[in-house]
Design a protein around this nucleic acid. Structure first.
Length: 498
RNA sequence: GCCUCCUUAGCUCAAUUGGUUAGAGCAACUGACUCUUAAUCAGUAGGUUGUCGGUUCGAUUCCGACAGGGGGCACCA
């Protein structure tokens, strides 16, 4: 992309100069709006002959213009929607000449009364306008056609994925449905906050820059602090810091923030993504399952309230179905998976289509078999509960069955939405697990973490029994909106530089 | 990291088996038009076809490298 002024940019510069020559400052300081476009539209009377008593002052970006000699129609777009503008030479006088100096993309403020055109469209009959920001670079507005059935067909729009993500500002400016997606995202997050706040949770912030990383298995980003002359990691999870706070007596805490994982990018992975984690003292995974279920309902309601997504949000009923991990896998397999040795696991995995099974560890094989036989077939939200210990190094053993842990994951449409445990709070057990991880690390496993002595010290002071949950909010929004690609729910997804 | 496809005007897209001057719609510019709405009508301008190199009398087209992107795979317990 070049910044060389071409003929289009040059024409706009000339208009900018012409505005100034006419005594109009094209970059204003403020504009006292009285109505959003949506509110203005609502003021138009049903009677086509009537004009509103109330004078409106609306502001926004010019999305289209149709000049007909001594009258001009335009559409103004703001955060609420769009409204048509009608300018008449005999009503605004000399100012009408200045319309020639406006372009699609300019930000203007318009004063006038509301009426309906012959075709019934609510319209501002302009008595005056102000230029608030001249647009010097053309935005790729397409043309919109309203079909017979009221649906909007957009022609020649802005659709190149690369440019849309690189120039999200332009994407947002010309594609209202993209704005709606991020409104939905914000509403969902707000609803989740309100839900947790109402339950007595405290929102906290823990370090993004960490001397040790942990709480998940992933390759981290590494960075350097100059003054301290030390390496730091960008967090891969919030978990260990949030549980320190449980030790400290902050009995219900949550954090919504970015985690960073140094891995591939695809339709469900972005190197930085938004994670919600929440921890509740004295709760076990049964309690957390109930909370997660209600939280999903609250989030779904928030997204459903956005008109664009009202029909997209999946309908599901509560309580969510539950499946025991072991029983569902064994049913699919026709035998007891825990009784199989490594060789037998590889053979079963191959049989159901797992590629390169011979290279996989035992826990990995079990997880692959589960994904193939159970996870990928789940459509309605379903809690899968009681994972084998081998798959769940951070969870407390299940009461009455030490082969399993008190862990659940929530799946829907074949994807994981949430992962949760009755948290391990025995510091001796925790130390052993850290040391096992350290041994893996010494053997070259980049994803294994070292011993976090400070975290162990915290746990040794005594950590109450605690339920903990993680929910990836990007993926939750994808599920609720039906959006297929994570970059479509992230404002500025990670890209190579131009 | 691997496979595969794509990159032409500000935007969305064409261009015959390799052929001479790379087209169209929208946007832009000039003009006409006082209820239009993908406004209409007449005219004008706008391109190093991603970059570099090769084959050829001739390359948007064929070949190679590079860059960016899309899709898929791997990775992501």
């Amino acid at each position: 992309m070049s910044d060389d002024p071409n003929f289009v940019l040059a024409a706009r510069r000339e208009k900018l100069d012409a505005l100034r020559a006419a005594g109009v400052e094209p970059f204003a300081y403020s504009f006292a709006r009285t109505h959003s476009a949506h509110e203005a539209v609502a003021l138009a009377a049903d009677d086509p002959a009537a004009e509103s008593v109330e004078v409106v002052r609306v502001a926004g970006r010019i999305a289209s213009m149709r000049a007909h000699g001594k009258t001009t129609f335009a559409h103004l777009v703001d955060g609420s929607g769009r409204v048509q503008l009608y300018f008449r030479r005999d009503e605004i006088g000399d100012a009408y000449t200045l319309l020639d100096l406006l372009d699609i993309g300019d930000v203007i403020g318009v004063t006038g009364v509301m009426f309906r055109t012959r075709s019934g469209e609510p319209t501002v009959r302009a008595s005056g306008f102000e230029v608030l920001a001249k647009s010097l670079r053309p935005l790729p507005f397409g043309k919109e056609e309203t079909a017979e059935d009221g649906s909007v067909i957009r022609h020649s729009g802005f659709s190149d994925p690369e440019q849309r993500f690189r120039q999200r500002y332009a994407d947002l400016a010309v594609n209202p449905e993209v704005r709606a997606t991020f409104v939905a995202r914000a509403r969902m997050t707000s609803a989740i906050r309100s839900f947790l706040d109402a339950r007595g949770y405290l929102e906290v912030e823990t370090p993004v820059l960490q001397p040790l990383y942990g709480g998940a298995a992933a390759r981290p980003f590494t960075t350097r602090h100059n003054a301290l002359d030390m390496s730091l990691f960008l967090r891969i999870a919030d978990e260990l810091y949030l549980k320190r706070l449980i030790v400290g007596g902050l009995e219900r805490v949550y954090e919504i923030g970015h985690d960073f994982r140094n891995e591939g990018i695809d339709r469900t992975h972005n190197p930085e993504f938004t994670m919600l984690e929440f921890y509740e003292a004295y709760a076990d995974y049964e309690v957390m399952m109930d909370i997660v279920e209600r939280l999903i309902v609250v989030a779904a309601d928030a997204v459903r309230a956005i008109p664009q997504y009202t029909d997209a949000v999946p309908t599901f009923t509560t309580p969510f179905a539950r499946k025991e991990w072991l029983a569902s896998v064994n049913t699919g397999l026709g035998e007891d998976i825990l009784a199989l040795d490594h060789v037998a696991l590889i053979q079963r995995a191959r049989r159901i289509g797992v590629q390169r099974a011979e290279t996989m560890s035992r826990p990995k094989l079990m997880d692959e078999i589960f994904q193939e036989l159970v996870e990928s077939r789940i459509v309605d939200p379903t809690f899968v509960i009681d994972y084998p210990v081998e798959l769940s190094p951070l969870a407390k053993p299940k009461r009455g069955d030490p082969r399993l842990t008190e862990r659940f994951e929530l799946f829907a449409n074949g994807r994981e939405l949430s992962n949760a445990f009755s948290e391990l709070n025995d510091p001796i057990d925790q130390r052993e697990r850290f040391e096992a991880q350290a041994r893996l690390r010494a053997e070259g496993d980049e994803e294994a973490v070292g011993v976090d002595e400070d975290y162990l010290r915290a746990m040794e002071y005594g950590m109450p029994p605690t339920g903990g949950v993680g929910i990836g909010l990007d993926r939750l929004l994808m599920y609720l909106t039906g959006i297929q690609h994570i970059r479509d729910v992230i404002l500025f997804p990670t890209l190579r530089p131009e």
